[in-house]
């Protein structure tokens, strides 16, 4: 009765798609087959900007989008670009997603013509480089590739590194040839893109949250009976433990593979992380406040209130 095309960027073996397949099956079961999800992975329906816009227009019913790609639609969501935002502990991080911070973030999409029904965890970014990453000082003078985000540029600037905005499609070549020396991505992405072939050092920092935002076309969402909406919300929420486990397994095997492939892997200690957070967080947060206005300020207040101990 209801069919939703859902587009996203990941390949069919990656955590997001595997979890989406579970969600599609669960939704079909909970609604007795009345709601069907058709998945279009790997950017088959376009790049993320196009897909998000298509969800606004109604030519696509839903997309599961990395927060980092949504800044043009909703500057508030760029809060997720801030390094060391979410606690390391998965349960504490999930509490933030489910609590006032997560709800306020999700609601900020309502005035942008789409309905956010939740956030999904999709791993954390770490640093890699061809130069040593022994400590915070080692970042000084290195060139890192970033997505074009003011917040990320400030993250690197705060430790003396230069950030270059390059398209993801050119990153491998850019690392290989030395256009940039380092980059930041989750470990399973680093393995999938074979960056180990062109990078020597890996610093497992888990500094940046890779949060997925689940967005539905508002008109389609509101055309659903209440019980189906509840079923869909439940299906997405119930998939989280499995999603987290799948991602954790992928990251663990990626780390082993990268080590076996000859990368010099070092895991950051909690003390080191705390020290780096102290440098990076304020700089990146201030850049965020500048671009996200009053809504951003309110969200940061909620966040800092919730995380203050």
């Amino acid at each position: 009765d209801f069919t939703a095309k859902i587009g996203h960027l990941e390949s069919t073996t990656q955590s997001r798609h595997v979890a989406l397949e579970k969600v599609a099956a669960a939704v079909a079961e909970k609604t007795g087959g009345a709601v069907e999800f058709q998945l279009f992975p790997q950017g088959q329906l376009g790049q993320q900007r196009e897909m998000t816009e298509a969800v606004q227009m109604g030519s696509l019913e839903a997309t599961v989008a990395p927060a980092a790609f949504l800044g043009g639609f909703n500057p508030v969501v760029s809060v997720m670009d801030i390094p060391f935002l979410l606690p390391d502990d998965p349960a504490e991080a999930q509490a933030l997603r489910d609590g006032p911070f997560g709800q306020q973030l999700c609601e900020s999409f309502a005035t942008r013509g789409v309905t956010c029904i939740g956030l999904w965890p999709n791993g954390r970014k770490s640093f890699s480089s061809n130069k040593p990453l022994d400590g915070i000082d080692a970042f000084d003078g290195q060139r890192f590739r970033v997505m074009d985000s003011r917040v990320l540029i400030e993250q690197f600037r705060s430790v003396g590194a230069a950030a270059m905005a390059l398209p993801f499609s050119e990153l491998y070549t850019a690392l290989q040839t030395g256009v940039v020396e380092g980059q930041e991505n989750p470990l399973d992405t680093i393995r999938a893109m074979k960056y180990n072939e062109v990078q020597e050092n890996l610093l497992v920092s888990d500094h940046g949250a890779m949060e997925d935002v689940i967005l539905f076309n508002t008109a389609w969402w509101e055309s659903l009976p209440e019980e189906y909406r509840t079923a869909i919300r439940e299906a997405f929420a119930e998939a989280v433990p499995e999603l987290t486990a799948h991602k954790a397994a992928a990251v663990a095997s990626a780390q082993a593979d990268l080590e076996a492939a000859g990368m010099n892997v070092r895991v950051m200690t909690p003390e080191e992380k705390a020290a780096m957070r102290e440098v990076m967080y304020p700089a990146a947060r201030d850049a965020y406040l500048e671009l996200a206005g009053d809504e951003g300020r309110a969200l940061i207040e909620t966040y800092e209130g919730e995380t203050a101990h």
Partner: peptide, 19 residues
């Protein structure tokens, strides 16, 4: 059932590509 806007949206999206 797709909105007509998809024609323009996809046409631009198809060439708005760094490669």
């Amino acid at each position: 059932s797709l909105p007509d806007m998809v024609l323009i949206q996809k046409a631009v999206g198809s060439v708005n590509h760094s490669t």
